[in-house]
């Protein structure tokens, strides 16, 4: 009596293992892409804070360190004066470094903290890239240099 029970148990175990394996395989096949998680899209928002000064022009350089990031689009800022897509080097292919700049001759200009640009990225791989910003130029409406702080997220 014991032997048939043991045999049944081992057969059951074997079937369960088989079913599990089949489920794993089936899951793998039904998933649309095995690398969906490996390729994803995200955006990097760049904020400048000019305090009480009006911001009329800016230029910064963005570096990506770690991970594999590629630029797939470049968007303007939240304020109407910087809503249009900024200038960049169209040959900035690798995406780990890009210079972005814009100006506005509008009468209404942003003060305080404002998002001036959004950079759309395609990230490949599990590693999360980090971004650094180097401010190169920030100007007020009369062309005078103004001090700002920068932030990206």
């Amino acid at each position: 009596m014991k032997r048939p029970v043991a045999r049944t148990l081992s057969l059951s175990c074997f079937i369960m293992v088989l079913a599990f394996a089949a489920a794993v395989v089936a899951h793998g096949q039904s998933a649309p892409r095995s690398d969906v998680q490996a390729v994803r899209f995200e955006s990097v928002d760049v904020f400048l804070d000019s305090s009480t000064h009006k911001l009329a022009a800016y230029q910064f350089e963005l570096f990506a360190t770690g991970g594999h990031a590629e630029i797939v689009g470049l968007e303007g800022g939240e304020h109407k004066a910087f809503a249009h897509a900024p200038y960049y080097d169209p040959a900035a292919l690798q995406g780990d470094r890009v210079i972005v700049a814009a100006y506005s001759i509008d009468a209404e200009l942003p003060t305080g903290k404002t998002r001036v640009a959004r950079i759309h990225m395609q990230i490949t791989g599990a590693e999360v890239p980090e971004y650094q910003i180097k401010i190169m130029e920030t100007l007020g409406p009369g062309g005078e240099k103004i001090a700002v702080t920068a932030e990206s997220r």
């Binding site: 689009g73 470049l74 968007e75 303007g76 897509a85 169209p90 292919l93």
Partner: peptide
């Protein structure tokens, strides 16, 4: 590419 009032510059 413009979506609403957002302008996204394309990349070559």
């Amino acid at each position: 590419m413009t979506i609403g009032d957002r302008h996204i510059r394309g990349i070559i």
